[in-house]
Amino acid sequence: MINCAIAGLGRWGRALVEAAQGEPRLRITRAVEPDTGGAAGFCAAHDLSLAASLDDVLADPTIDAVLLATPHSLHKRQVIAAARAGKQVFCEKPLALRHGDAAEMFAACRNAGVTLAVGHNRRFWPSMQALRAIAASGELGTILHVEGHNSNENSQAITQGWRLSPEESPGGGLTGAGLHVLDGFVSLLGPARQVYARLSERAAGPPPLDTATLAIEFVNGVSATLATIRATPFYWRVHMFGTKGSAEVLDEGTMVLRTSGGAPATTRYPAVNTLTAELAAFADAVERKQPFPVPEADVLATLAAFEAALQSMQSGHPVACHMAYQ
């Protein structure tokens, strides 16, 4: 049994607690949440004791791992503190807003001999797993281009808090929603070489009305475009184009395959609880059964492209990604 504490009991932190109930190797027993009054009922319902602080949890010898669903700017300090305390770490994406900070976190966990797993839960979508398999098989021929989109109207319900802060969530919808697509691109294509990005802001809100668009060149020569909108109903699309065909993922369980001379073939995959799946993968990594399936190199490559996108939005010019990926 891996005894865990969770920091952050907002919408996503609560979803992680409930998802962990489907993984018998993880038992969340303690929670850290500044809004103790708002969290009291949830903690009582899930048999969680509220801790005074994360430091209190890290000093508890009965806690083996911490799950972090906290504001992005807190991740670096929290991850490094957890590593120094010998705790295994699961941290929600984005791990950091800067590539260099993420590299420091991975180094701290590696030096401490603990796992650092980053919660890119859409890696566990059956449709995206199938797309990676098709891309790797060569069935699509030479990959030339990928298009991606993620819209998520959750921001319509957010009128205050850190998720609306340009410091915590820069780049419009890129941090909260678009980063899922960017990580999907990296999982398919590897690191990016250059990003040209634009943030178009219609109204500051709340809720904010903006669009983020990216044109990306990958090291392997593939081009890509990405768009994300915070204020429209949920929509997901990752469409990979090759010389022999294309494959388009439309949601968690739907993929459309197109080949020359043939009718489009739609495949639908059984639904899975992706949060439970990623927590099961975290347990596997803690038990040293297999590495967490979102490797450090991919996390850093995604953040290198993300950081370049933010710089491009400011400068209005294409920006090369971190030199480690040239």
Rank of each mutant, 00 (worst) to 15 (best):
V272A: 12
W162M: 08
L275G: 11
G173D: 12
P71E: 04
K76D: 10
L144D: 07
F241I: 14
T274I: 06
M323H: 09
V319R: 09
D56S: 03
A117K: 05
S187M: 14
R202Y: 03
L275M: 12
E33V: 04
H46Y: 12
G86A: 06
F282W: 14
D284M: 00
V32T: 02
Q311S: 14
G161W: 13
A20L: 11
A203D: 15
S260N: 08
G173E: 06
R123D: 12
A5F: 01
A59S: 04
A52M: 02
P295Q: 03
R258A: 08
L164H: 09
P71G: 04
E153W: 10
N121E: 15
D101M: 00
S127W: 01
A51D: 00
R198M: 09
A102W: 10
G242F: 02
R163A: 14
G161F: 10
I158Q: 14
G190L: 10
S315V: 07
A263E: 14
V118P: 04
P206N: 01
E296D: 04
Q311I: 11
R258M: 11
G253L: 09
L257Q: 07
Y325D: 01
T115Y: 03
H149G: 03
F292G: 00
A44P: 11
V89T: 01
L250N: 13
V219F: 01
H145V: 06
G148A: 00
G184A: 07
L250E: 10
A19K: 10
A227D: 06
P126V: 13
I63Q: 00
R110Y: 12
D56E: 10
V222Y: 05
S127M: 01
A157G: 14
W125Y: 07
D101G: 00
M1K: 13
I6E: 01
G37T: 08
T70K: 09
Q314K: 15
H46L: 07
T274C: 08
A85F: 05
P34Q: 00
M255H: 08
T29E: 13
F282K: 11
T243W: 08
G10N: 09
L189S: 04
G261I: 01
G86I: 08
Y269Q: 10
A215D: 08
G245Y: 03
A281I: 11
V299M: 12
V294G: 14
N154K: 14
L189H: 02
F218L: 03
D210P: 00
A20Y: 08
S137R: 02
E92C: 10
S151Q: 06
A309G: 07
G161S: 06
G245Q: 07
P94N: 11
L279D: 13
H317I: 06
E23G: 10
S315Y: 05
P61A: 00
V66S: 05
Q156N: 15
L144P: 07
N3I: 15
V89S: 01
L275C: 10
